[in-house]
Design a binder for these strands. Structure first.
Lengths: 225, 225
DNA sequence: GTCTATACTAGGATAGAC
DNA sequence: GTCTATCCTAGTATAGAC
């Protein structure tokens, strides 16, 4: 009787801390879930993606929901890891915010499957069909998502308070900004020949569009022809 | 033998042009799909939402996919109907673009289910499991989506060319903008006590954040503290 | 036109071989 | 630890009553 499945992790330890084996599964799952969504993805599909049978997956995970949660947990971990260093770093609010956005955009380009599954999770409720252990992970995810968003709000607020930015509502401004970043995962198709500098230019230009509006001077209305 | 199911419409006639009955079904389907996604929604759920049994639904629609497509067709029709009047209207590019965005935001607030299902459709492929008739609708949807996006690109381009806006890449700028608008459907929760003016203020403020960056004057860099 | 009852299949999950 | 074989529920779709 093969019944070893590890417990679902609640902390933010990288998925590959347990084993490369498990990490291979999560990555395959991310790709499969991205294409067909949670309900539309069968465990067999994930196994196919990996080139094995579902026996291997059920040995490592208790079920589909656990696997889905682990993809999200890993995605959230990546996101926080990439922006957190800048929140309390040296430099102006503008510079820090700019770095956070650019890094997040580049991460979204590089890890599209994880990022898109993360969004699926946000939109999903998974109803009452969750075990207590799963609920715990779900709560952790929600908490981390708030934490993540709060990092942006913090930096924007600092810029507004110091007069570096114009007087926007930081929470609303961040929603607007995050929408642009997240939507990228839907329309952006990584081309294999695309160089890193090219990606960076795209990220930089997008960031410009998002941050131009924070400039304080203005007063002058947009010319109406 | 109950086998009357109408053919799937390909044009942009409102769903309720056929009958209120059919329209009632599409609206219920939109709500159900929004919550659980395409694969996660059973026809029984849609029937429950409507307070009937699946017999009624299968009488009007050939199957789940057809129903899903019809929700998307209706959503896309709403979107184009709401922005199209402004594209070639009188007024500056700024005024027209601003109206398009505000109207779209208000529509997203009012018709959340349709809008969120539309996004699901964009992200979905539905694999090869589509009939020729369904493919036709799918192609029409893709075409209309491009058309929709192109309307925004057109107005932004006009503004750039005339010097009314600064020199952004219109296509990229529109992607950034649309992300913010679409993401609204995920985080915004309509409160029953919320007044229309309140919604309009929110829409107006969001639009400000998106369009501030189009102003041409500038030249002055953001102060770095 | 909408209902209830039923067929059929996909897919989550487990058992036991290797 | 991974595979194959199997169980069983959930859900699409249809038939036929009303």
């Amino acid at each position: 009787m093969a019944r070893a499945s590890r417990k679902l992790r609640v902390d933010d330890v990288p998925a590959d801390a347990d084993s490369d084996n498990r990490y291979e599964i999560v990555r395959a799952a991310a790709r499969a879930f991205m294409v067909n969504g949670y309900a539309g993805t069968s465990i067999d599909m994930v196994a196919d993606e990996l080139g094995c049978t579902k026996g291997r997956i059920y040995y490592q995970y208790q079920g589909k929901a656990d696997l889905f949660f682990d993809v999200q947990r890993e995605a959230m971990r990546m996101n926080i890891a990439v922006i957190e260093p800048y929140v309390n770093a040296q430099g102006s609010a503008y510079e820090r915010l700019r770095s956070m956005i650019e890094k997040q955009i580049l991460l979204n380009m590089a890890e599209q499957p994880f990022q898109r599954v993360l969004v699926q999770g946000v939109e999903m409720h998974l109803e009452g069909s969750t075990t207590p252990a799963q609920r715990e992970v779900l709560n952790m995810l929600i908490q981390r998502r708030d934490e993540y968003e709060q990092h942006f709000v913090t930096v924007v607020s600092q810029g507004v308070k110091s007069g570096e930015f114009r007087a926007v509502d930081p929470r609303l401004f961040v929603k607007v900004m995050l929408g642009s970043i997240i939507w990228l995962t839907v329309w952006y198709r990584p081309r294999p020949d695309e160089t890193q500098p090219k990606r960076e230019r795209l990220a930089s230009e997008m960031t410009d569009y998002m941050l131009q509006g924070l400039k304080p001077e203005v007063a002058a209305e947009v010319r109406t022809r």
